[in-house]
Simulated assay, not measured.
Amino acid sequence: MMIDELTSLVDEYLRSPRSLAFVDLAERLRTEGRLEAAVRVALTGLEHYPTLSAAYDVYARILLDIGDLDRAETIWRELLERDRRHVGALTGLGGLYARKGDYDSALDHLERALSVDPADPAVVQALMRVRRAAEDAEGDATSAQASEQTLFRGLDGAGRGMLLADRHGQMLGGRLETPAGDEVSEPAAAHVASVAREATRTADMLGLGPWLWLTIEAAAANLHLSAPDDQSLLLVVRDRSMPAGRLARLAERAAETARGWLGEQIL
């Protein structure tokens, strides 16, 4: 999002705090990871519009990002009591139940959302993500690990140091392990999405345009974060012995592999 768009929303909100601009502003702040500000804007707006469904929907998404799943679920359930075809509530609950590992409930809500609005890209993408996650969950640990390693097969570190995630923090493929050998793929995917949001916010604030990649040097390893496309994120981790230039080339090869794999999922 360009910084002038956020500025325009803020200006409109400040000129007229009772206007409905607070809904879009709260959502913009949420997507940029500015969750405390998003909460304040949403709650202030709800004081003026205590029955506005769109405001409650945005507030529930903010709560989900914060990690308050119980309150988010309560709000979305109340929205569905008013309107059983509320796409935002159905989609939100689908994502929430997927996060809890209840894939049957997640798919049920997302398929209901799709039946209401088959052309909504957010619903379609969410349904694809949850279907993949449900399929992965059906296998045992051995088959799951084999599936994770297949995506980047043949690349250095494919079985332990390459992770593909979507912009919402959902793991799509690959595998990430600590130096001790503990798998941290799923929590790492959530953190990667948060880092990407902050990088986008900072680049926009400084007027630098879209960020291309991030390189991080740590005590035990070097990390390279990039975006194979506008919906995904790729983290490549290798030990400190790999030079930065070689790490960047390895990451680009992995990104090419990821783009090909993502294209196959859409077909």
Score class of each variant (00 low, 15 high):
Gly173Trp: 00
Met128Asn: 13
Leu164Thr: 00
Leu233Met: 07
Arg129Ala: 14
Arg167Val: 14
Leu164Trp: 00
Arg132Ala: 14
Val237Lys: 00
Thr178Gly: 05
Ser232Pro: 07
Pro228Cys: 05
Gln125Asp: 14
Trp211Tyr: 04
Glu217Asp: 14
Met128Trp: 15
Asp204Cys: 08
Arg240Gly: 08
Met162Gln: 06
Arg131Val: 08
His191Thr: 14
Leu208Phe: 10
Asp230Gln: 12
Ala196Lys: 04
Arg246Cys: 05
Pro187Tyr: 11
Gly173Ser: 08
Leu208Val: 03
Leu223Thr: 03
Ala158Tyr: 13
Leu172Thr: 08
Leu223Trp: 12
Val195Pro: 05
Glu138Gln: 15
Asp239Cys: 09
Ser232Val: 10
Asp229Ala: 10
Leu155His: 01
Met171Arg: 12
His224Thr: 03
Ala158Gln: 00
Gly157Cys: 07
Leu208Ala: 13
Ala244Gln: 12
Ile216Trp: 09
Val130Asn: 05
Gly174Pro: 01
Leu164Met: 02
Val124Ile: 12
Gly161Trp: 01
Met162Thr: 03
Leu212Asn: 10
Met242Ser: 04
Ala189Ile: 00
Ala220Pro: 04
Pro228Ala: 02
Ala203Arg: 11
Ala219Phe: 07
Leu164Ile: 02
Gln170Thr: 15
Leu234Gly: 00
Gly245Cys: 08
Arg201Pro: 05
Gly181Ala: 04
Gln231Gly: 12
Gln149Gly: 04
Asp230Met: 09
Phe152Pro: 00
Leu208Glu: 04
Leu206Thr: 07
Leu163Gln: 02
Glu198Pro: 06
Pro243His: 07
Gly173Gln: 00
Gly169Ala: 10
Gln149Phe: 02
Leu172Val: 10
Val130Tyr: 05
Leu212Phe: 10
Gly154Gln: 11
Gly181Gln: 03
Leu223His: 09
Val123Asp: 02
Arg153Val: 08
Gly161His: 01
Pro179Ser: 08
Glu183His: 10
Ala137Gly: 06
Leu163Arg: 01
Asp156Phe: 12
Val184Gln: 08
Ala146Asn: 15
Ala133Pro: 06
Ala146Glu: 15
Val184Thr: 11
Asp204Ile: 08
Val236Gln: 06
Leu155Gln: 06
Arg238Val: 03
Arg131Thr: 14
Ala133Ile: 03
Arg240Phe: 05
Ala199Met: 07
Ala180Asn: 12
Ser232Met: 09
Ala203Met: 09
Pro179Cys: 05
Glu148Thr: 02
Arg197Ser: 03
Glu177Pro: 10
Gln231His: 13
Gly174Tyr: 00
Leu127His: 09
Thr142Gly: 14
Val123Cys: 01
Gln145Trp: 07
Gly245Phe: 06
Gln149Ile: 11
Ala137Ile: 13
Trp213Ala: 15
His168Ile: 05
Pro179Arg: 07
Pro210Leu: 07
Arg201Asn: 10
Ala196Arg: 03
